[in-house]
Nucleic acid binder design. Structure first.
Length: 334
DNA sequence: CCTCCACTGGAAGATCGGGAAG
DNA sequence: CTTCCCGATCTTCCAGTGGAGG
């Protein structure tokens, strides 16, 4: 039943973009100078998850690569490369300047200097999940590096601006900003349909069933596509030619728990212990949490460190903190 | 209402692990 | 081998905050 599994991978970038014409045009206009060996404008893309921000940014840079002879592009996920060093390293990687960089023998600011010295063809860098950067000052440094054309992607605009200094904030506010809104159910169905056509058997999933998936995904294309993938896999396992409604209903929760499990696996041992304690309690006060953590561990980390773990798990969408100060409790996301 | 203190999260410095240079 | 330096991780210290409980 599955013809091309790649189409259902989260990082797949479709050739034809549906429902984002306006956004694509705005981004294209901002990047247009690049086709003329000039610097493009720094663009800020924002909106909730699963609305095509990353997809469209990558789609645009792919297209530019095809049409412009001299051009470098690079995609950086700041969630994964959240430190200043890793971010700069990734950017240098895109122009092949990392062959002799080793974190111990390279002077501290060598990376940024190399970037500033760059005088090759236009360089378009996508900084995804840019609000996850540990030290946002690197954004300011990059902004001043004139040779870069940046596409910044963030979930929430206000959370990105909040820790930035005024100068950068005002510059970003006046640069091109594109807001992505949630997909409607019909739009989501039309995003899923070509994936079925390209990735599965044409009749493997009915339009009504796509509606079922779209409804459960609540405007989040990532969840929708993951659900489709899980459903197709399950149907194949059961030796079916088409996906049944039952399979879809199960796939919705399975898709969500798979996304969660992937994040749990990325936690360290100590972080997983903290996470398990929270899951078992369902709802726990900070002091109780730390006391229990100490009991469960041979060499417990400091309470301050546990607070760092909690922040990280919040970012991973694994737990949620409720209330402030003394009223705070933690609970896991279901 | 007010006070207290559990809790948060920034800052600074220590420690760890690892690769390069001597 | 040792020494040195790096980023990453962790600890220590502490100022600020706002909800619980008088």
């Amino acid at each position: 039943m599955i013809r091309d599994a790649r189409v259902l991978q989260p990082e797949f970038v479709p050739i034809d973009i549906v429902h984002r014409t306006q956004e694509v045009n705005t981004l294209a206009a901002a990047l247009d100078p690049v086709t003329d060996s000039q610097w493009g404008e720094t663009t800020l893309i924002h909106g909730p998850s699963g609305v095509g921000k990353t997809c469209i940014a990558r789609h645009m840079t792919d297209k530019l690569q095809e049409s412009v002879l001299d051009l470098n592009t690079q995609y950086v996920n700041c969630w994964e490369d959240y430190s200043r060093f890793k971010t700069l390293y990734r950017i240098l990687e895109g122009i092949g300047q990392t062959y002799d960089i080793h974190r111990q023998s390279t002077p501290r600011d060598e990376l940024l200097e190399r970037l500033r010295d760059y005088d090759g063809p236009p360089y378009v860098v996508i900084l995804d999940e840019v609000d996850q950067l540990e030290d946002k000052r690197v954004l300011y440094e990059l902004y001043r590096t004139q040779s870069l054309t940046m596409i910044l992607i963030a979930n929430r605009e206000d959370e990105l601006f909040e820790p930035l200094n005024e100068r950068l904030t005002s510059r970003l506010r006046t640069s091109t900003r594109i807001e992505f809104k949630r997909y409607s159910m019909d739009e989501l169905v039309e995003i899923l349909r070509p994936r079925v056509r390209l990735g599965l058997r044409e009749d493997a999933v009915t339009t009504d069933q796509l509606g079922l998936i779209a409804n459960a995904a609540a405007g989040d294309a990532r969840v929708g596509i993951e659900t489709l993938r899980v459903a197709a896999r399950r149907a194949t396992h059961e030796g079916l030619d088409t996906v049944s409604d039952d399979i879809i209903r199960n796939a919705v929760s399975e898709a969500k728990s798979e996304i969660r499990q992937r994040n749990v696996d990325r936690l360290t041992d100590h972080q997983q212990i903290v996470y398990e304690i929270i899951t078992e309690h369902g709802d726990i006060a900070p002091s109780d949490l730390y006391a229990e953590y100490r009991e469960h561990t041979e060499n417990p980390k400091s309470d301050r460190m546990v607070r760092n773990y909690l922040k990280k798990m919040e970012r991973y969408n694994l737990i949620r903190a409720e209330g402030h100060n003394r009223g705070r409790t933690y609970h896991s996301v279901t």
